[in-house]
Design a protein around this nucleic acid. Structure first.
Lengths: 258, 258
DNA sequence: CGAAAATTCAATCAAAATCAACCAATAAAT
DNA sequence: ATTTATTGGTTGATTTTGATTGAATTTTCG
């Protein structure tokens, strides 16, 4: 067997099994332990896999910037459940605005509806939306470091060209008095405008955001359907429920994800 | 058997099997080991295949269409050199348009200038630009599958809000009569507009694009500085040089990437 | 928690496989 | 007939491989 073929076999085995023990790779390739070790060293150097004690594993990420993709991988069970619930509101033919952020990103894998058009201001959203083969539009703008959201004048101008059936928005704070808020006024402006352009708005926020009021308010609680998780603070939760239309999902973390 | 026939058999065998051991090729062609070795050396020189220890393989590019990320990792030496040369034109404080595509993407790691502003229509460019901490703006638009370029009305509208010091554009064809061209008219529209908005334009194209005329023309050869690689077709190269302002880099491929 | 046992690791070396360079023999061209 | 190009075999050099070693790591157990 040629060296090149062995590499292929190793990588292929990893694709299927995520991780591989040394002995397994020896078995698959019919090569010696030493050879496999050497191969792993080389393939790791080429960033094709990651060596771990006892074998090898797939790289966490196939995307250059690991941080963004890792977040994607590390969706908490809470986020997944909120994403799944949010996706249930989506119907065939909808035009959607999906806000930048990981909470909203979690919606995409659950969208079953066909002929959905997605408009977004989030770099991470684009990547996922494309991967799931949705028709995807981007608003322009300045790329904010950190959240990788598109903001500013360009974003506002672009956004005004669209109308949405549904807007899905992330938030940093959910406060009874102050409503929904986020630290960056420019991001708030985009969220506000997107909601204005949408027939129906949904805000995704786990219950840890309850009672938080950050710098820039972009909507009142009654302006959107709030998709959230169970809260320990039942009193506050009840108050919020009185004002907003709340959809609550369990926050059990069955898989032990953080 | 004629030499030429042997080449055909070797290449044909490779097409079917992706990789070939030396012994297999000896078997197929009924030639000696030495002859096959010589053939492989020659065919590799013509970029028809890649020699590997123990035999030969198809060029990587034909084995599997690399994903966007892999492309990014697998910048050829040519692309890197073109990127480096292109980056030398960039000065402190420049406002740049960087077209979607891997050729233009290769520029980013080489940008030394400070306070550079990058505007782009390419998903891959955004990721890299952010990683290198440049001030980055995106034009809006429809996200085209495949190239992941932003195109269409939204992109045009956005683009008209900007003026650039320099525009760096990728192309699919460099033809003396037809100029620069690309298969998608919508992408051509963006390229054309970006060049119009820029004080100075640069087109990046390795010499394999010479003589290619694809569907949609977006500029004439004299409209931009052409950054390219050495060409085997010296006659055509000279003709191009007469028309366009050409910057040529060596196309040595030290690392054996396809 | 910490020491002992077991496993895995990296480094080294000799054997095997493969390679490039060279030479003589053959075929083709002048 | 002489020269030139191509081929096949041989040589020593290079690369790859598998086994062995002691070191490093993980696991087990007191």
């Amino acid at each position: 067997m040629l060296t090149f073929e062995r590499y292929e076999k190793i990588l292929n085995y990893l694709e299927n099994n995520k991780v591989a023990k040394l002995a397994e790779l020896v078995e698959v390739t019919d090569a010696s332990e030493s050879t496999i070790r050497r191969d792993l060293t080389i393939l790791e150097g080429e960033k094709k896999l990651k060596r771990i004690h006892g074998g090898a594993s797939l790289l966490k990420s196939k995307v250059a910037e690991p941080s963004m993709f890792e977040k994607q991988q590390q969706f908490t069970n809470e986020k997944k459940q909120m994403g799944e619930r949010a996706a249930q509101f989506i119907q065939d033919g909808d035009c959607l605005f999906i806000d930048a952020g990981t909470s909203t990103q979690a919606i995409i894998p659950f969208i079953q509806a066909k002929d959905v058009v997605i408009v977004t201001n989030g770099l991470n959203i684009i990547e996922d939306a494309i991967q799931h083969q949705f028709r995807t539009y981007v608003i322009g703008g300045y790329v904010k470091s950190g959240t990788h959201a598109f903001i500013g004048k360009g974003a506002v101008d672009s956004l005004q060209q669209f109308r949405f059936d549904k807007a899905f928005i992330g938030t940093n704070g959910v406060d009874i008095q102050f409503g929904y808020s986020t630290p960056d006024p420019e991001e708030a402006q985009i969220k506000q405008l997107a909601m204005k352009q949408a027939s129906q708005s949904f805000v995704l926020a786990d219950s840890s955001k309850f009672g938080d009021a950050t710098f820039a308010k972009f909507a009142s609680l009654e302006d959107a359907v709030l998709i959230t998780t169970e809260s320990d603070d039942h009193v506050y939760f009840e108050k919020v429920s009185k004002i907003a239309n709340v959809e609550v999902v369990s926050n059990d973390d069955l898989y032990g994800n953080s």
